[in-house]
Amino acid sequence: MTNAAIAIWREAAQIVRNMQTHTPPASEDAWNFALDRASKALEQRAAELERGDTQILSQLKSLFDKFQTDRMATKDILRELEKNEVSPGASLDSRRLSRELARHGVQPVTFKIGESATKGYVTYPTKTQVGLAAAWRQYL
């Protein structure tokens, strides 16, 4: 989910809260109770999305620290996350990883490992992205 999507969930919760009457007759108590439960559920969903938003960043920080590297191929990242069973929610593939990290200004880049070029993620900024280190500082 993007920050805009999280904001939409929060806005929906606010709309539901605003629908409550402030001096309800007895027959409106059930209405206000239902609205209160709905707004809390929407807020909870927004909070879950927000936590999930940084979970992959946190997992990548641990992974890059573990291997003491400034770059990792996407396939290696996915393999390690799967091995450690730390990918949140639905299965993580290269597209989902890219979408999740794009929200933080991080994009996959092509770099060399030995003689072969590969696509993956780096901790340092490039012309096209901020680098994982900047995202870690800002969001963790």
Results as ranks from 00 to 15, higher is better:
92 L>H: 08
104 H>Y: 04
58 S>I: 06
50 E>Y: 00
109 V>Q: 14
121 Y>I: 12
37 R>E: 00
19 M>Q: 12
32 N>T: 01
119 K>Y: 09
18 N>F: 01
44 Q>K: 14
86 V>N: 06
70 D>P: 02
34 A>W: 03
54 T>D: 01
99 R>V: 04
95 R>Y: 12
4 A>C: 00
91 S>M: 09
74 T>L: 05
76 D>E: 13
136 W>G: 01
123 T>M: 10
31 W>N: 11
106 V>A: 03
83 K>M: 10
80 E>K: 12
106 V>F: 04
56 I>C: 03
101 L>M: 14
130 V>P: 06
17 R>T: 12
15 I>F: 09
108 P>N: 08
119 K>G: 11
70 D>N: 14
75 K>M: 08
20 Q>H: 02
50 E>L: 00
22 H>C: 02
12 A>K: 12
69 T>Q: 09
88 P>M: 07
72 M>G: 09
87 S>V: 05
7 A>L: 09
11 E>M: 08
131 G>A: 03
81 L>I: 14
72 M>C: 06
82 E>V: 03
127 K>W: 08
95 R>K: 15
127 K>C: 00
87 S>P: 01
40 K>N: 13
80 E>R: 11
6 I>S: 00
132 L>Q: 04
116 S>T: 15
62 S>R: 15
4 A>M: 06
77 I>Q: 04
112 K>A: 14
122 V>P: 03
69 T>F: 10
74 T>H: 08
118 T>G: 02
26 A>N: 08
77 I>H: 06
16 V>W: 01
15 I>N: 05
52 G>S: 07
72 M>V: 05
73 A>D: 08
122 V>N: 02
96 R>F: 03
26 A>V: 11
21 T>H: 02
140 L>M: 15
24 P>E: 01
43 E>P: 02
80 E>F: 08
59 Q>M: 03
103 R>S: 10
116 S>L: 12
82 E>S: 15
58 S>L: 13
107 Q>F: 11
107 Q>S: 11
103 R>Y: 08
58 S>D: 10
97 L>V: 12
2 T>Y: 03
26 A>F: 09
139 Y>Q: 09
43 E>N: 13
18 N>V: 00
82 E>P: 00
34 A>G: 05
89 G>A: 12
125 P>M: 05
59 Q>I: 11
40 K>R: 15
113 I>E: 14
123 T>D: 05
43 E>L: 10
106 V>I: 12
34 A>T: 06
35 L>W: 00
48 E>V: 08
64 F>V: 03
107 Q>V: 07
21 T>R: 07
124 Y>H: 15
61 K>M: 06
101 L>S: 06
16 V>E: 01
49 L>I: 05
27 S>V: 08
59 Q>S: 14
64 F>T: 04
138 Q>F: 01
115 E>M: 10
96 R>Y: 03
86 V>G: 07
28 E>Q: 15
61 K>Y: 07
29 D>Y: 10
90 A>P: 05
9 W>M: 10
10 R>N: 13
130 V>S: 11
48 E>Q: 14
47 A>L: 12
62 S>W: 10
56 I>N: 01
54 T>K: 14
5 A>Y: 00
68 Q>A: 11
53 D>V: 00
108 P>S: 12
112 K>P: 02
60 L>N: 05
85 E>I: 04
135 A>C: 08
67 F>A: 10
131 G>S: 06
2 T>V: 02
45 R>K: 15
92 L>A: 05
77 I>W: 04
88 P>D: 07
116 S>H: 14
